[in-house]
Amino acid sequence: MPSRLRPALVACVAVVLLLVGSTTAYAAWSRATTAAAGSVAGGTFAGTVTWSTPLNLAGMYPGETRVGVVQVARTAGTNGRWVYTVGTPTVAVSGAATTASTALATRLTVTPYTAGTFSGTTCGGTPLTLGAASAVQALGSVVQHCVAVQLAANAPGTVQGGAVVVTVPVTLENRSTN
C-alpha cells in the first residue's frame, strides 16, 4: 500500500470504531417503549375550473371579439401551498377535419386576462402571463379571469362553415411547504 494512503486508512478505521462503540454505549443506556398509533391520512387539494360566464363563440364574423370568464376555485384541501397556472390556450378542429375548420383554427386569437371583469367585448386588466404560477391561494378562494376570443378581421370566406374547439388549460398544484 502506498505510504501516503496509510494515514487516511487509519483515520477511516478510527471513525468506524468510534461510531460502533458509540452505538453500543447508547444501547446500554436506552429503554424501548411504544406510543399509541394515530391515524395518517394523505392531504387533498380539491379545486374546480369552470366558466362563470360561458364563452359563446357561435356565428362569429370577421373582426368580432367575444368574451367569457373562467373561474378557478380552491374548494378543499389541507396542507401545502395551493397555486394554479393558466397555460397557453389552444384552438383545434372539432370533429372531422375540413378545409373550413382547418382555416378557421388559424384565424382565432385567444387571450386570457388578469381581471375577471369585462365591458361589452373588452376584458378588464391586462393580458395574463401564461405559464406563470399564481400567488398561493387560501382555502375557499375563488379567482376569475376574463378570456377574449377574436376572429381575425381579414379572415377569408373559406372559413365559413368551419367548427373548432377553443381550450384554456389550467394546472392546479399543491406545493410542499418546505
Binding site: G47, V49, W51, G59, V166, T167, V170, L172, E173
Partner: peptide, 12 residues
C-alpha cells in the same frame, strides 16, 4: 398536480 381545462366550440 392536476391538469384541468375549459372549452368552447367556435363557428362562423
Amino acid at each position: 398536480t392536476d391538469a384541468r381545462s375549459v372549452n368552447a366550440t367556435a363557428g362562423t
